[in-house]
Design a protein around this nucleic acid. Sequence first.
RNA 1: GCGCCCGUAGCUCAAUUGGAUAGAGUACUCGGCUACGAACCGAGCGGUUAGGGGUUCGACUCCCUUCGGGCGCGCCA
Length: 586
Amino acid sequence: MKQQLAQILTDVVQQLKDQGVIPEDAAPRIHVENTRDKAHGDFATNLAMMLTKMAGMPPRDLAQKIIDLLQNSSIIEKVEIAGPGFINFFVNDSAKFDVVGQVFEKADDYGRCNVGQGKSVLVEFVSANPTGPLHVGHGRGAAYGASVANLLDAAGFDVCREYYVNDAGRQMDILATSVWLRYLEQCGEEFAFPSNGYKGDYIFDIASQVRNQFAETLQKPAFEVFAGITADEGQDDGDKEKHIDDLIEKAKHLLGSQYYDVLQIAINSILGDIKDDLEGFNVRFDNWFSERSLMDTGVIDAALEKLQKAGKIYEKGGALWFRSTDYGDEKDRVVVRDNGLKTYFASDIAYHFNKLERGFDVLIDIWGSDHHGYIPRVRAAMEAMETNPEQLEVLLVQFAVLYRGGEKVAMSTRSGQFVTLRELREEVGADAARFFYVQRKSEQHMDFDLDLAKSQSNDNPVYYIQYAHARICRVLEQAVDKGYRLDLEQGMANLNLLTAEHETALATELAKYPEVIARAAVVYEPHQIAYYLKDLANGLHSYYNASQFIVEDDNLRQARLTLISAVKQVLKNGLALLDVSAPQSM
RNA sequence: GCGCCCGUAGCUCAAUUGGAUAGAGUACUCGGCUACGAACCGAGCGGUUAGGGGUUCGACUCCCUUCGGGCGCGCCA
């Protein structure tokens, strides 16, 4: 309907050009919007105000001229000039209900569009280090990323969901060493656990797994393990970083190849837990991409070579630097350290290089906002590899600040003090948690009140929406019980009987759904879906309270049941985008 | 100190991307079940959009500035 009006206005613009009112080369953006206030009709355009300067006449006069040029349309009932020069369109009721037929025709596909034109897009999200269970901070990124991916899919993009597994580097060594030390404790050795080690309870569990598999064969006496190790923090000349690094070296030395067995057990255990956790959160990935595979297949060297050929790599102080300042970064960045080890950044360059080689049109990275300082250097690397800067889109997610009992909850992975995503899911449910996270704009700071989410989960808006869906299901069941089975054909034929304000409002709301998806998708804002669904549910609840659906009049009853069935379908479609269930009853 | 993000009703958040009288939920005050589920509906209360300046027909939105909060500024990942 909106497109029809836009087309009509495009014709008017051409006529204005022909009449010499505006210059031939003018190319105004035709903007038709939904009105917020019913008094302003159904749709409005600001066209007259946009052209007022060009035409050299007052906006209201120009608006009148535009109206005079409007051709007759079957859907327009009335046109008015309002305010500073808005043109308001009133659409007739029968046209408003055309949408109901479209909903049933497309069913689960209603709302899908093709703004993506089949372009392939890689959405990388979560990508938490496999050093421990996911916590509630990761939960927001997971919920947001999954919904963005769903949105893009609905908008006609070819989406691939990927998790980048940081299974290489020092953090992995700290993990393996932490596990081994806990294992030694379980074998009866006594020593002070390193302050920089991973202290979570899950480390004990993994240590037990190691013990189940290797019995006591990996046991070494504590005095031998700690011989010649730099002191830990808190002691004379203590240094927690050197302390843990020395322990890692010692572990590798004492365990030989079996060190990597311990490492693999740890990674498998934690990654298995993460996968299971995300599955329970209804977050699914098409691909789990291993950082280590980049090293094994020489992709890092290939990527660095490409930068080298572009003349963007130089040597200084024994290290290799990438000249990212050529692309607006604050300083150049090291890619190979003087000790010959590649930096994490080198891996990341290679990872993005690999993404490009896989032929994606658009790369979307979803990161925690604490990584925002990292964007310029990745962008720089992309540009040095001669890609279009618009091919990379980095979306940031603010970490949720947790509150418990009115107090901020301090969280630190290393210290093992954090609320896990699993905990949250089990206490408030996956549906409520997913919805709660995605209700707010991603870059917006967010207060997550655990007490509220847990103890008053019935107040969560997700129940409001699900209730609307369940309510419709119940009404349809009741109708069947009374021998009034829904007959869509009859209902569609009698939609003209629906003239109440609640009814036309619902039809209008249904018609908005496809454009909400299109708009939300291009700006990566799933919260718009959440708000839309709340509005739609509100429309249904109001309608429910205002009138009875199962009435004596056969045609009227069928028309009403048909309308709410359409609402049911759209509620289901919208909830599906957020991976929230649409229950038949609750 | 420099850079990025943010500041909207008592609280938690929206605002069709520059449009009309800034809207929801919650809290508080009223009212609505012998109707298809009251996990619901209706009404009221609540605002100098942090402060100030600018851009224009028009600013919560864009620019400058001050204040306040978060994050980042390693040959860590």
